[in-house]
Write a protein that binds this DNA or RNA. Structure first.
Length: 603
RNA sequence: GGGCCUGUAGCUCAGCGGAUUAGAGCAUCUGACUACGGAUCAGAGGGUCGGGAGUUCGAAUCUCUCCAGGCUCGCCA
């Protein structure tokens, strides 16, 4: 319904300018315009849209808001095009104008949406502006090699995937990058340690499991912290690796392969796909970063380390905070890698990704780090004029006690175990329900439903929360069958599928739709909001807005379903209601698809 | 101490500068199953939007200040 809203906005703006020509031309001279402030109605009883502009214009126009509103309405009454869309506008309260769309208009819109595969959401593919067509890089998930994916990776992975899906659907060219931690000091430690405890792992594929690697990694870390000689050998191993020693590289590759296999299992379960491009990828570009910074006179050697001092960001002592890009020992650190990544991503193809927008989905704790890195990238002039660089932060995952989520024994929770538990719990619930209802279902059905519900619940619980705040993780809440949860949304779809099974042909094309119940109209109005919601998610990168919408749509549908018969209705109501069922199902499916959540016909 | 984030119903959270009455969900209480799956629906109670000041015709929303909590602040990522 964005097109309608835009067209209304233009009509009202014209009316405003016709009513107050002098003020309008004055505004034009100073480079601005009179803004009618058309927004969706704040409450259903106020209609579909409201115009707020009259209140703000009262002072400059030296008239009362109500008389401005009246003048706008007088102009609108002359506009045939406007009158074909809207019922007679009403002045309310101190000077709001309430607009209610005509039923013919809503009906025409819903008919269009029924025919449209994209459900009214415009695609940018036809657009030609450079900014809109350039690549969007989304950096998310980013686990570390030789470690298991744990609950800390959950939010980045799920939120990043959803943002990627929304932008892809809108027609952006999206590069989903997995910036895995596959380089740096930890590999020196690990290789040095493996040489003594499991040398076969360095020359043979599959010699050790990831679980063992994780154990070895912990041991190596401990040795590194306690043993000075081991620290020395570790550093030597890092240097060998970074200099491209073939044996070291082979060992490194084997370790990475082993981790990668494990990551793939998780990504497959979550149905998330991204392109791996780890920190090691940027190794050849690190030196250039230093050279560039030197050339732009940003580089300062302090205490033996090469740094860039940040502007307007101070440390404990109130002095400008340095960002170290090359350590005393000549090694590079993560700031260097991140800078190299930004430089590469914005560089033109084939020496870069040619990105116009780069998005980082990482925890809020890294906000300072990214603020610094972004600032340096800007000062080094690596970001093109139209380029956009954003950190999309999210809060911690907490347990129900409000503390950081841990297992009973105090360890970080493995992502694999977390997903297993969600699926197990979904299965237990399902079996209990089947027993209570006396239903018999195949094992395959039970496993499939439990898996879908479990994964959907985990994803939805995360996405439905505003990502900026900390997130309280609770299996009980996310798997609850009522409330703003995945199972509630899935159930709405199952009900529609049930109607189809009972003989309702959802695919019939309807020549003449006929609606007369308020429940039908409120469902129609909700369905027509979909394009606006997608627009907002794209703009604000807040998937919870989409979740809220889908939940409200499900509620409105359930009300409709409860209060209005579909299959037993007489024509043309029957077909018209079936059409609404179909569009509701399509909207829920598409919406959930954009969240990365699978759906079901039966559960 | 500096920076960033958070503070809204008993709990978990939405909330886009707009309207008498700040919204959901959970929990609590009361109703509704011979219409398509009751995993639902209808309704009730529950709030000084952390405190204070300011900007504005209008503030949960913007600004300042104070209070509380979290994260972060030089060679880990």
């Amino acid at each position: 319904m964005l097109i309608i809203a835009n067209s209304l906005s233009i009509h009202i703006k014209n009316a405003l300018e016709q009513a107050f020509p002098e003020a309008a031309s004055k505004a034009h001279e100073s480079g601005s315009t009179l803004d009618p402030q058309l927004v969706p109605a704040s409450k259903p009883e106020f209609g579909d849209f409201q115009v707020n502009g009259a209140l703000q214009l009262a002072k400059p126009l030296k008239t009362s808001p109500r008389s401005i509103a009246l003048a706008i309405i007088e102009q609108l009454q002359k506009n045939k095009e406007f009158l074909s869309l809207c019922k007679s506008p009403e002045i309310a309260g101190p000077g709001f104008i309430n607009l209610t769309l005509k039923e013919e208009c809503l009906q025409a819109e819903i008919s269009k949406q029924l025919e449209d595969e994209r459900l009214g959401v415009q695609s940018l593919k036809s657009s030609s502006t450079h900014k809109e067509r350039s690549t969007v890089v989304i950096d998310f998930s980013s686990p570390n090699i030789a470690k298991e994916m744990h609950v800390g990776h959950l939010r980045s992975t799920i939120i990043g995937d959803s943002i990627a899906r929304v932008l892809e659907f809108r027609g952006h060219k999206v590069l989903r990058l997995n910036h895995v931690g596959d380089w740096g000091t930890q590999f020196g430690m690990l290789i040095a340690h493996l040489k003594t405890v499991a040398p076969e792992a360095l020359i043979t594929a599959d010699a050790v499991e990831l679980g063992d690697l994780v154990k070895f990694y912990r041991q190596a870390k401990q040795r590194f912290d306690e043993d000075i000689i081991f620290q020395q050998t570790s550093r030597e191993e890092v240097i060998k690796l970074q200099n491209g020693n073939s044996k070291s590289l082979k060992a490194w590759k084997l370790i990475c392969d082993q981790s990668r296999k494990e990551f793939e299992q998780i990504y497959n379960r979550l149905d998330i796909h991204l392109e791996e491009r780890g920190e090691s990828f940027y190794n050849p570009y690190l030196k250039k970063v230093i050279d560039d910074l030197k050339d732009s006179n940003l580089l300062i050697v302090d205490d033996g380390a090469k740094c860039v001092f940040l502007e307007d960001i101070t440390g404990k002592d109130g002095e400008a905070l340095p960002m170290i890009v090359q350590k005393q020992d000549g090694g590079f650190n993560y700031a260097t890698t991140d800078l190299a990544a930004i430089r590469y991503r914005f560089s033109a193809i084939p020496n870069g990704d040619g990105a116009g927008r780069v998005i980082y989905v990482t925890d809020a704790g890294q906000a300072n780090h990214f603020a610094g890195v972004f600032q340096i990238a800007k000062r080094a002039k690596w970001i093109p004029n139209e380029g956009c660089l954003e950190h999309v932060p999210f809060g911690l995952v907490q347990g129900e006690n409000g503390k950081k989520l841990k297992t009973r024994s105090g360890e970080t929770v493995r992502l694999r175990d977390l997903l297993d538990e969600a699926v197990d719990r979904a299965e237990t619930d399902l079996r209990l329900r089947l027993k209570q209802e006396g239903r018999i279902e195949s094992e395959a059905f039970i496993k499939h439903v439990a898996n879908t519900v479990g994964i959907a619940a985990v994803k939805y619980a995360d996405l439905s929360q505003n990502r900026i705040t900390n997130y309280q993780f609770s299996f009980n809440k996310m798997l609850a069958l009522q409330g703003n949860t995945a199972p509630y949304l899935l159930y709405a779809l199952v009900r529609i599928a049930g109607i189809a099974r009972k003989g309702g042909n959802l695919q019939t094309t309807i020549a003449s739709l006929k609606f007369n119940e308020p429940q039908e109209w409120s469902l129609i109005r909700e369905l027509l909001k979909f394009d606006k919601v997608i627009d907002e998610v794209e703009e604000e990168l807040l998937p919870n807005r989409l979740c809220t919408y889908l939940f409200e749509l499900s509620q409105i549908f359930n009300r409709f379903y409860d209060q209005v018969p579909v299959l037993k209705a007489v024509e043309p109501s029957r077909s018209s209601r079936l059409a609404l069922c179909r569009l509701t199902a399509d909207t829920l499916k598409l919406g959930m698809n954009l969240l990365g959540i699978p759906t079901l016909e039966r559960m």
